[in-house]
């Protein structure tokens, strides 16, 4: 099912967004192929929300290009019918019931599957007639996701959907999402500042830090490209010459390196280990936190 030849559902090139003097997103070039569930990971303030809003056409870029489902995002019915967007605050009309929202969706969308929402809510025991403001956070999130899916979108953009949920609600939400994705034809980009929320469900990763893209690609490929090296404290210039050093931890006795490798590592002094997704993400985030990152360390845009 996953192949590098899958057509791109999201493609951005040198995308930037400034709010007056603040750069919310800088030089962002990403590709998300069809059928992926992509994790948009990054610390708070990294530009995740900005990117999602640009992709949904809710905000306009100040630089660069975006293609979503083959066109530039714009607020017209043809484009909007293809995407589902769920904002972080889960905005719904608090005084209205779930049934009211289902009816609103039917009025505002040419393609609308209200029955699926009813079935989902009945399955979860969420009352249809009660004002949405009186539902729990988890119930509201489930309702919002069901409503978003009822449009039968080809791309789902979710902004921190599970951040405010308890573990059970989080699991139910993600299961709901995974089930929708299993139907096929759906690409998902969901943001979080916690990788652990998304690790199981995502097969693609976009890592943002400091308003820039640090990593973008299929998780399996990214993991295979990177390696952890553990060895004695010694000169690592040879390794750094052959490979791209992402992050290094040096103690008086020991050196731990996270590298993006170009070919096999041949240095008997170092023990090699596979990198976990968490180590990979933390490595790139740590690199950013240490100071401004040299451009060539960005995994994006053909750094080889």
């Amino acid at each position: 099912m996953m192949a590098s030849s899958d057509p791109a559902v999201i493609q951005t090139r040198a995308l930037s967004k400034r709010y007056r003097t603040v750069a919310a997103l800088t030089d962002c070039t990403i590709t998300v192929p069809e059928g992926r569930i992509s994790a948009l990971i990054g610390p708070n303030g990294a530009g995740k929300t900005t990117l999602l809003r640009l992709l949904a056409g809710l905000a306009r870029p100040t630089g660069g290009d975006i293609a979503v489902l083959g066109t530039a995002p714009r607020p017209d019915p043809a484009f909007l019918a293809g995407i589902g967007f769920l904002a972080q605050e889960i905005p719904l009309y608090r005084r209205m019931s779930a049934a009211d929202h289902i009816r609103i969706g039917a009025h505002l969308n040419a393609r609308w599957d209200g029955t699926s929402v009813r079935q989902r809510l009945e399955g979860l025991g969420i009352p249809l007639g009660q004002a949405v403001g009186t539902l729990s956070g988890g119930q509201r999130a489930q309702l919002a996701l069901a409503l978003t899916l009822a449009k039968r979108p080809r791309l789902l953009l979710l902004d921190e959907p599970v951040a405010a949920l308890d573990p059970l609600a989080r699991r139910q939400f993600l299961a709901h999402l995974a089930e929708a994705a299993a139907g096929g034809g759906l690409t998902v980009l969901l943001s979080s500042h916690l990788l652990s929320d998304l690790e199981r469900i995502c097969d693609h990763l976009v890592l943002l830090a400091g308003s820039r893209v640090q990593l973008c690609g299929d998780v399996d490929a990214l993991l295979a490209e990177h390696q952890i090296l553990v060895g004695p404290r010694k000169d690592t210039t040879a390794i750094e010459r052959d490979h791209t050093l992402v992050h290094a931890v040096r103690t008086p006795r020991q050196t731990t390196l996270l590298i993006r490798r170009n070919g096999p590592v041949i240095d008997p002094a170092f023990e090699t280990a596979d990198v976990s997704l968490e180590e990979l993400v933390l490595g790139y985030m740590g690199q950013h936190a240490d100071g401004p990152s040299p451009a060539h360390l960005s995994a994006i845009g053909g750094d080889q």
Binding site: A175, A178, R200
Partner: peptide, 18 residues
């Protein structure tokens, strides 16, 4: 089915397919 597995475990459908 893939759908049943992901609905119960919240893993990526592609993982189950693989």
């Amino acid at each position: 089915t893939v759908r049943e597995v992901v609905a119960a475990t919240a893993v990526n459908p592609n993982t189950v397919l693989k």
